[in-house]
């Protein structure tokens, strides 16, 4: 758990980047910090690995204040993915990924095994990619490497600073999905800075909305859409999106089958494909299962989690999905 206690940041010229922030980033969750540029979201995140230092207040990691920690050691224990990829162009993919293990002085075998394991985790064949250089990879591949590089030292916490913002829309969608799936496996505490509400709603367990160095609202994607705390949050989420959500009572599950999950082997609550999304939400809430099995006749045609339902609820006509 990462906890901010009355954290402030005042720059030498007097501007206040953060005003008395107190909040908690829960363990094993992906928390998105979102807000317009200049709202302090990146500053807030960079305080966790001491790239920025607060002018007041304290930050705790698992209840240990980080003030006294050695910053180099601290950073080696926290994964970090930056906005413009930041791979080292003169190092091979293997050297890039094993950088933190090298700093931590892991033995050679362990480093290499780790590189192979991580490349496989994001679907890059180790034999093909290990000895390549970053510029020989596509943007999407590079940022996959950026993500696994942050995981190499097996940190508990991973910080991501708008990691997908420089990618084309298709790769971005793909990497968002992959990150979501990856998180199921790795279960890290991820802090994800973004200015893209679609992205935040799609990937985050909880979202922190910021403006002018202050927190406007903290909540799950659904809470934010259902109940925006104020006008600012409402506008930031987009009135359009909220209205869509309100109108989803009309829409039925079978319209969104391609957004749902195809395979699921665990228990699931059955629901007719004719049911409205609203009904599906309610039924899933009451159910002891996390999945809905959507049936047409006797046949299960898809599965849906509450995240899938949210996707469907926020689905835009133009085909840009949330």
């Amino acid at each position: 758990m990462i906890r901010f206690e009355n954290v402030t940041k005042r720059f030498p010229d007097g501007t206040e980047a953060l005003k008395d922030i107190s909040l908690v980033l829960p363990t094993h969750e992906l928390t998105a910090i979102i807000g317009p540029s200049g709202c302090g979201k990146t500053t807030l995140m960079k305080m966790i690995n001491k790239l920025e230092k607060p002018t007041g207040g304290t930050i705790y990691i698992d209840e240990n204040p980080i003030n006294g920690m050695d910053e180099v050691q601290l950073r080696r224990s926290i994964g970090y993915v930056i906005q413009r990829i930041g791979l080292f162009p003169h190092m091979t993919i293997s050297d890039n990924v094993s950088l933190v293990p090298k700093l931590l002085e892991w033995p050679k075998d362990k480093k290499e095994a780790r590189v192979r394991e991580l490349l496989q985790l994001v679907g890059l064949d180790p034999e093909t990619y290990m000895d390549r250089f970053p510029l020989e990879l596509s943007g999407g591949q590079q940022q996959r490497v950026g993500v696994i590089r942050a995981l190499a030292g097996d940190p508990n916490i991973v910080l991501m600073d708008e990691p997908f913002s420089a990618l084309d829309p298709i790769s971005r969608e793909q990497l968002q999905d992959e990150l979501r799936n990856l998180q199921q496996t790795i279960n890290k505490t991820i802090v994800f800075v973004t200015h893209d509400m679609d992205e935040a709603l799609k990937i985050a367990d909880s979202i922190i909305v910021m403006r002018d160095g202050q927190v406007e609202q903290i909540g799950t994607p659904q809470q934010l859409v259902d109940d925006p705390a104020n006008e600012f949050v409402r506008n930031f989420i987009g009135v359009e999106r909220i209205n869509q959500k309100r109108a989803f009572g009309e829409k039925r599950l079978f319209e969104f089958l391609d957004l749902f999950t195809a395979e699921w082997s665990g228990g699931a609550e059955k629901i007719s494909a004719d049911a409205t999304i609203e009904k599906a939400f309610l039924q899933l809430d009451d159910s002891r299962h996390n999945y809905l099995a959507i049936v047409e006749g006797e046949q299960i045609i898809a599965y849906a989690t509450d995240r899938d339902l949210l996707k469907a609820a926020l689905f835009k006509e133009q085909g840009v999905s949330v």
Binding site: L51, R75, Q83
Partner: peptide
């Protein structure tokens, strides 16, 4: 040298000499 490259190094815990 691209600032983001250096920031990546710093953020991953490289010392100034490294």
């Amino acid at each position: 040298v691209d600032g983001s490259t250096i920031e990546a190094g710093r953020g991953m815990g490289m010392t100034r000499t490294q």
